[in-house]
């Protein structure tokens, strides 16, 4: 097999010597931040303006690590004599990252694009209870969500864009359909998910905004009443109540 005895030994020496001259692969992490790829699963951000408290995420979560509290509010009829409408108002949205296994199912199932992956990963805590990120903190993570990476050249248009454009064309056939394109691919998703609909149907979204503002002003149900809530928040962390 081996033509020259000892050639294997020499080969081994050559391998180590060659490796020595090459660049090392060590990441100098605390000194140099890692260059993370797009769609890195660091932490989950909540874009709560989009959340309709449909509870899909909490139900799909394999770890049961999402806690959602909400209450119904009645909205007076927009037009006199009209029917009153009720809507869900989010009271609490918390993700326990000590339970989360970063499967991303909640983000996948969210029908309203309220959950996003953020590449931030430095949120270790000395107390495990602090790993339950409440609504405010989850909302803060949204600012760290990067723009989605550009599509491959020649890639199919995303489904969402196609449907959005179709809707837009149906509703306002006289406006030029090209405007949706650049708006939809606006880099920061902090706002854009709403803009898609907002831009095309401003008359629909406007009441929503006022409702949300009003809901935020109104005192909501105190935390801890819900039967489904298993993790009682600590008294000193009720800031999001």
């Amino acid at each position: 097999m081996a033509p020259v005895p000892g050639s294997g030994l020499a080969k081994g020496l050559a391998v180590t010597l060659r490796t020595m001259t090459k660049k090392t692969v060590t990441e100098q992490y605390p000194d140099v931040q890692p260059d993370l790829p797009p769609r890195t699963r660091g932490v989950i951000g909540l874009f709560e303006e989009n959340c309709t408290v449909c509870m899909l995420c909490a139900r799909e979560c394999p770890d049961w690590c999402i806690y959602i509290d909400s209450h119904k509010e009645t909205i007076p009829a927009a037009t006199p004599g009209g029917r009153e409408r009720s809507r869900n108002v989010l009271d609490r949205f918390a993700i326990d990252f000590s339970l989360c296994m970063y499967c991303g199912i909640c983000i996948e199932v969210c029908p309203f694009d309220a959950l996003f992956w953020s590449p931030e990963f430095e949120y270790a805590e000395t107390d495990i209870r602090d790993l339950t990120h409440e609504r405010d903190k989850l909302r803060e993570w949204m600012w760290t969500v990067p723009a989605p990476p550009a599509l491959d050249p020649g890639a199919e248009e995303p489904k969402e864009l196609t449907t959005a454009r179709r809707t837009a064309e149906k509703l306002t056939p006289h406006t030029e359909p090209q405007t949706t394109g650049p708006q939809a691919t606006e880099p920061r998703p902090a706002k854009p998910q709403v803009t898609d609909a907002q831009a095309t149907r401003p008359e629909v979204t406007e009441p929503h905004a006022t409702e949300q503002a009003r809901a935020a002003e109104q005192p909501t149900r105190p935390l801890g009443d819900s039967k489904q809530q298993t993790d009682q928040p600590r008294p000193d962390r009720e800031g999001d109540a």
Binding site: T16, L17, T19, M20, K22, T24, V25, T26, Q28
Partner: peptide, 13 residues
């Protein structure tokens, strides 16, 4: 240092 670099590492820094 030599061992680290032969293994693609940096060694003590």
């Amino acid at each position: 240092k030599v061992m680290a670099h032969m293994q693609g590492r940096l060694g003590p820094m």
